[in-house]
């Protein structure tokens, strides 16, 4: 069971809520799958949040960006995309597994590292002001700065990567 360990607070289990799995080919066949999955999952998990409609909107916004990252994954690979949502109190954990060649992992590792860096906001503002940056970096930085996300990466196997995003959205909606 995944746990949250932050600020010395005792680990609390994340409870699984929903899981969606499809082939990368099926996802990449239609761009709007990202939008459709994000909205569907957001509506499914938000009903018992304090403001279900606004929570669903905010969660959809975050999940769509993650699904778009998976959509943009290498087209040379086969494999599955698995999106799991887990909950621990006011935090939603998204674990998104998608095909990724070992040689490409550094792109995501670098983006996650930069998004969590001390000067992440400065870098993010530079990107908004016109500096060039990989789209992953901008998206993940935005998620950290605007949604207070905590991001980590896990390697599933040689050709898949799992991006984990803890999203404390409930307090942002309240």
């Amino acid at each position: 069971m995944a746990t949250l360990a932050k600020d010395g607070v005792q680990d609390t289990p994340f409870e699984p809520m929903i899981e969606i799995e499809l082939s990368i080919e099926a996802l990449q066949a239609e761009w709007r799958q990202c939008d459709g999955i994000a909205n569907y999952v957001a509506n499914m998990i938000s009903h018992n949040r304090s403001d279900s409609i606004r929570y669903a909107n905010l969660f959809s916004s975050a999940l769509n960006e993650l699904m778009e990252i998976a959509f943009r994954a290498s087209r040379r690979l086969d494999g599955r995309v698995v999106c799991r949502i887990l909950r621990c109190d006011g935090i939603e954990r998204v674990t998104l597994t998608f095909p990724c060649a070992a040689a490409d992992r550094w792109i995501y590792e670098a983006s996650v590292a930069r998004a969590g860096a001390e000067d992440a906001e400065t870098q993010y503002l530079s990107i908004l002001a016109g500096d060039l940056a990989p789209v992953h970096q901008e998206v993940l930085s935005a998620m950290v700065i605007e949604c207070h996300a905590r991001l980590t990466l896990e390697s599933m196997d040689a050709e898949a990567l799992t991006l984990v995003a803890d999203l404390p959205l409930e307090r942002l909606v309240s």
Partner: peptide
């Protein structure tokens, strides 16, 4: 009402 909008656009005046 649109939670992401307030968070996204708040940076604009910082860059311009």
């Amino acid at each position: 009402i649109v939670g992401w909008a307030a968070r996204r656009f708040r940076h604009l005046s910082q860059i311009e």
